[in-house]
């Protein structure tokens, strides 16, 4: 894919909370299909991701996703850019996975039967149809995270924002989650922006951003950025 229609633009963005500068991005345009964001905790990775779908609003400046301002058109932007967080348990609220996926559709689809069908298809597509009627509470973190992915994919987003999606998973479940995501990238052309501490995962992207101390400290080829980050962190 050479020219992706999904473009995310940051212009003169500053995010302040209680007088403290969380993130400053003077100019940034993202159009690659796979982008990874690395950097220390509290550096602003999460804020950067949340700006893209309007969960965090810029105190100054603006962010557009697909040409839509994330503040003015928050709802539409969030339909296009799905978000998966690191804590799997906190993302699910209903007793069973199927009901949780249906809940995502409540606003967009009026018919309960149709909601159920689409939700079921979505779980089948992710290979977790067997979990549909289980108690969400009793699922493993890995299973919960796949369900969380389903609750977001059911909107058919073009962009997936993944905020340390595998940090709380064990090795096998993390691998299952990442392979599922790369299948979505290949099969449906979904663009992903992944914030992660897993540098191997970060290296699989086309472009890597290093976010540190509330600014983008480096931006470019994954290999180059990761090497620079590694040497700086261990120095």
């Amino acid at each position: 894919m050479t020219e992706s229609p999904q473009t995310i633009s940051f212009r003169d963005v500053r995010v302040l909370a209680a007088g403290r500068l969380l993130l400053e991005v003077p100019q940034l345009d993202l159009s690659e299909q796979r982008i990874s964001v690395i950097g220390p905790n509290g550096g602003g990775k999460s804020t950067l991701l949340q700006l893209v779908n309007g969960l965090v609003e810029p105190t100054e400046g603006y962010v557009t996703t697909d040409g839509l301002d994330t503040v003015e058109h928050g709802r539409q932007v969030r339909q296009r850019a799905g978000f998966v967080f690191s804590n799997p348990a906190a993302q699910l609220v209903m007793p069973t996975p199927l009901e949780d996926v249906e809940l995502s559709l409540r606003r967009s689809i009026g018919h309960a039967d149709q909601r159920r069908r689409i939700a079921q298809d979505c779980l089948v597509g992710l290979g977790i149809a067997d979990l549909a009627a289980r108690s969400s509470q009793e699922l493993s973190s890995g299973q919960q995270q796949l369900v969380a992915l389903a609750t977001v994919l059911v909107f058919k987003p073009q962009i997936l924002l993944l905020d340390e999606p595998t940090t709380l998973l064990d090795l096998a479940n993390a691998a299952r989650f990442t392979s599922m995501v790369s299948r979505l990238e290949d099969a449906h052309g979904i663009c992903t922006i992944t914030a992660t501490h897993d540098l191997e995962l970060a290296a699989g992207a086309e472009r890597t951003l290093l976010v540190e101390d509330g600014r983008i400290a480096a931006d470019g080829e994954p290999e180059q950025i990761i090497t620079a980050y590694r040497s700086r962190s261990t120095a």
Binding site: N53, L55, R78, Q79, F83, F85, A90, L103, A148, V152
Partner: peptide, 9 residues
């Protein structure tokens, strides 16, 4: 709250 906001619920 964030996860619910992201899903518009």
């Amino acid at each position: 709250g964030r996860a619910l906001s992201a899903r518009g619920i």
